[in-house]
Nucleic acid binder design. Structure first.
Length: 430
RNA sequence: GGAGAGGUGGCUGAGUGGUCGAAAGCAGCGGUUUGCUAAACCGUCGUAGGCCUUUAAAGUCUACCGGGGGUUCGAAUCCCCCCCUCUCCGCCA
């Protein structure tokens, strides 16, 4: 959510910077509503002040034995007037808040201006794509051939965009989760948390998924008899939601900052509107696993912490010996809540291209303002900055390993760093 | 799911429908005292929003005592619904 005072005093600047995201935003309407809202509030509150003052007189009059019926009637009339005014305030306020909460974050000044993913800017590259003396296969062929990945039965069990892992496939996925968590907790200073995988709508609002992106989420139903009614429980689309909301409506002590947390969770996404994209393989599934990094920082430290967080995610790929590049997303490609985002893209031989495996963002105070996460600054409080990034997406790392470490005979070499977790050096057909 | 108890400011904890935004204590902050620490004493100390103001501060008003609705001139206090916590019972990994 935008800082209202800043919005009022820097309207033109904010409008110009938001325009770089592309699309049009109802900023003029928001400014107009802001004025209407304030006028309505002032009017209603003046009436309330009058009513309160009159009401207090009744107490005094009654004690002195005076008759108050006439005064009571007069106050009741004010009360009716207030009721009408309050309805106005409520109507304006509701539209105002809905509009305001839909305004995306203002891009940081270092974010390149652009329209689409084509305008993202590569900032570094690590490792070189492996050279094969044979035609490398994509994981959707390799996996089933190795007997570690089964799409047919997953479709039977559930439907499209789900996967069933067998044997070494399942163990590889589990090994990656442990390797990620161990690396971040032992070497990068994160504290591990294990949050609920179901959250309420307040949490989703806090991190910005609601109200705008309900269609991307799975919501749980409750049935009583023949009635099916929605609950306020939603499957998490990312650990960002429960972990960031850990401190919702709390004030943190400044000496505790930055707080660095990491969490393993499954993630559930309806992927509405993505039909036809990444339909093959496990790149885009309704359910996947992820280890997420989340930080709460002082505002002045957040960009240094974003660099560290991004480096912590990259370090996993370095340790696994996987080639990757890091790009900074342009204004037109960034998520609405983010002020600046780095995507880490791993090399996938099956696609002959780099593919996003982590997205590291600084939300500045955008989420903190929505979620009420503050820290103490002397006598006052201020909003923290929140950051997060995948460290990493487990399924896509699984794909990267299988595709990059594949051999001519169809087996897959296990990267050194994972061998303590798998107790195997090669994945081959059983 | 059933029965009971309870949800008040950072924490503990009072509160009779009428200056209750709310006693008291602790913690915090400022100060006095002190060689330093501690103790003692004095003061200060919620959040959000509106108005005023060059921003802020100050001032003033409004709202907030788990959430929502209701009764009343007036609700932390009375009524209804919901949520959460605790104890016991049932079911269950």
């Amino acid at each position: 959510m935008l800082d209202l005072a800043f919005f009022r005093s820097h309207f033109d600047e904010i409008a110009a910077r938001l325009a770089t995201r592309g699309g049009s935003l109802p900023l003029e309407r928001l400014r107009e509503l802001d004025g209407k809202r304030r006028a309505a509030i002032t009017e209603a509150e003046q009436l309330k002040a009058r009513k309160n003052a009159e009401s207090q007189k009744i107490g005094q009059l009654k004690r002195s034995g005076a008759d108050t019926t006439e005064l009571q009637a007069a106050i009741r009339a004010i009360g009716d007037e207030i009721g009408a005014r309050d309805k106005e305030v409520e109507a304006v306020d509701e539209e105002f808040r809905l509009l305001l909460s839909g305004i995306p974050n203002v891009p940081h000044e270092t974010v390149p201006v652009g329209r689409s993913a084509d305008d993202n800017v590569e900032v570094r590259r690590h490792g070189a794509p492996p050279a094969f003396d044979f035609e490398p296969k994509a994981h959707w062929d390799l996996g089933p051939e190795l007997g570690i990945l089964d799409f047919d039965r997953a479709a039977k069990l559930t439907g499209a965009r789900f996967a069933l892992y067998w044997g070494m496939g399942a163990r590889l996925e589990r090994a990656l989760v442990n390797f990620f968590l161990d690396t971040h907790t032992r070497h990068h200073g994160y504290t591990e948390v294990l949050p609920p995988f179901i959250v309420n709508s307040d949490s989703l609002y806090g991190t910005g998924q609601l109200p705008k992106f309900a269609q991307d989420l799975f919501r749980l139903d409750k049935r009583s008899g023949d009635e099916i009614e929605p609950t306020d429980y939603w499957l998490i689309p990312t650990a960002e939601v429960p972990v960031t909301n850990i401190y919702r409506d709390e004030t943190l002590e400044p000496e505790r900052l930055p707080v660095s947390l990491c969490a393993y969770t499954p993630c559930f996404r309806s992927e509405a509107g993505s039909y036809g994209r990444d339909v093959r393989g496990i790149i885009r599934q309704h359910q996947f696993q992820k280890v997420e990094l989340v930080k709460f920082t002082r505002p002045e430290d957040s960009y240094a912490e974003l660099d560290k967080l991004t480096a912590d995610a990259e370090d996993i790929l370095v340790r696994l010996g996987l080639p990757f590049r890091t790009v900074v997303l342009c204004t037109g490609d960034m998520g609405p809540s983010s002020a600046k985002t780095y995507d880490i893209e791993v090399w996938l031989p099956g696609q002959n291209n780099y593919k996003e495996i982590s997205s590291c963002s600084n939300f500045e105070a955008y989420q903190a303002r929505r979620a009420g996460i503050r820290y103490r600054t002397g006598k006052k409080t201020d909003y923290v900055h929140t950051l997060n990034g995948s460290g990493l997406a487990v399924g896509r790392t699984w794909v990267a390993i299988v595709e990059n470490y594949q051999q001519k005979d169809g087996s897959v070499v296990v990267p050194e760093a994972l061998r303590p977790y798998l107790n195997e050096e090669v994945i081959r057909k059983p």
